[in-house]
Each structure stands twice: as structure tokens, then as C-alpha cells.
């Protein structure tokens, strides 16, 4: 499955949730399903600080693919983080770096990625792209 196929799957999932409360119920469910991040990974170097909620993001690079573990102290942020991890985790740095994250807009949660929202999500997406960029640059140098 490509990144875009995963995004489309999510868009479909949310399509039937017209009420805001149902959408958030779903996001909270997503948060509860997100695998627990080990406490020892919640180090300061993996923290992405928002004004209101904190996000932890732990990257792993295995067999040419980038994997992410993430968590947040706020459950809605954690649910959104979970969605992003679901879409982007397990792809090559090149694929992640060039990915266009359109699903957030399509499911009506664009406001959470606005710079003024200060929940750490926008910074998290930037950080994911930065990891991908660093790794793909390193790969190119090796080649």
C-alpha cells in the first residue's frame, strides 16, 4: 500500500462521520489503539513542544525504511499523531520526504495543523520530514 492509498483509506473512514463529535470520538479511539510508547523513549530529545500539549516522536531506521513511534500527553493530539504515524511509518525516506499529506485537510482537521494551534502537530510533521530528508541525503552521499 502506498502512502496515498493509506491516506485515501483514512479519508473513507472519516467520510461517514459527519458530526464533529463522532469525528473526535474516532480520533480518541485511534489514540487508544496506538501502541504504548515505552516510557524510556519519552526523552527530551524526542519531545516536540507545543504551547498546550507535548508530542514525543521516536524514529527508527530499519532496512531502508523509516518507522515512527509517537505519543502525546493530550489524547486528541495523540489520536492525530497516531493517524500521521499510520500514514507515514514504514516507507523509505524519499517517499516520506515527498509525501503530500492531504488527508488531514480532507477529513476536516486542517485547523490542528495551523501554526497558531500550538499543539505540536505541525512541528511533528516538520520533524518527520526532516528525519526523512537527513536520511535520504545521507543515502545519496553513500551511493
Amino acid at each position: 500500500m502506498t502512502i496515498n492509498e493509506k491516506q485515501d483509506e483514512l479519508v473513507e473512514e472519516f467520510e461517514f462521520l459527519s458530526d464533529w463529535m463522532d469525528k473526535y470520538e474516532h480520533i480518541i479511539g485511534e489514540a487508544k489503539e496506538l501502541p504504548e510508547m515505552q516510557e524510556d523513549l519519552k526523552q527530551d530529545k524526542y519531545i516536540i513542544k507545543g504551547c498546550q500539549s507535548k508530542v514525543w516522536l521516536y524514529p527508527e531506521y530499519k532496512d531502508g525504511k523509516l518507522y515512527f513511534k509517537a505519543d502525546s500527553d493530550a489524547i486528541i493530539s495523540k489520536g492525530l499523531v497516531g493517524l500521521i504515524v499510520r500514514v507515514l511509518s514504514g516507507y523509505t525516506p524519499e517517499e516520506i520526504q515527498t509525501a503530500d499529506l492531504y488527508f488531514i485537510d480532507k477529513i476536516g482537521l486542517k485547523e490542528h495543523l495551523s501554526p497558531t494551534r500550538s499543539n505540536g502537530l505541525l512541528a511533528m510533521v516538520k520533524q518527520i520530514k526532516l528525519y526523512a530528508l537527513a536520511l535520504s541525503t545521507a543515502n545519496k552521499v553513500q551511493q
Binding site: 463529535m21 473526535y24 498546550q52 500539549s53 500527553d73 493530550a74 489524547i75 486528541i76 493530539s77 499543539n119
Partner: peptide, 10 residues
């Protein structure tokens, strides 16, 4: 058990 941010969003 709930973060103020979550309550504010809802």
C-alpha cells in the same frame, strides 16, 4: 485523566 487541550477542542 484528561488534558485541558482535549477538553477545549471538544
Amino acid at each position: 485523566g484528561a488534558h485541558p487541550y482535549d477538553i477545549g477542542v471538544l
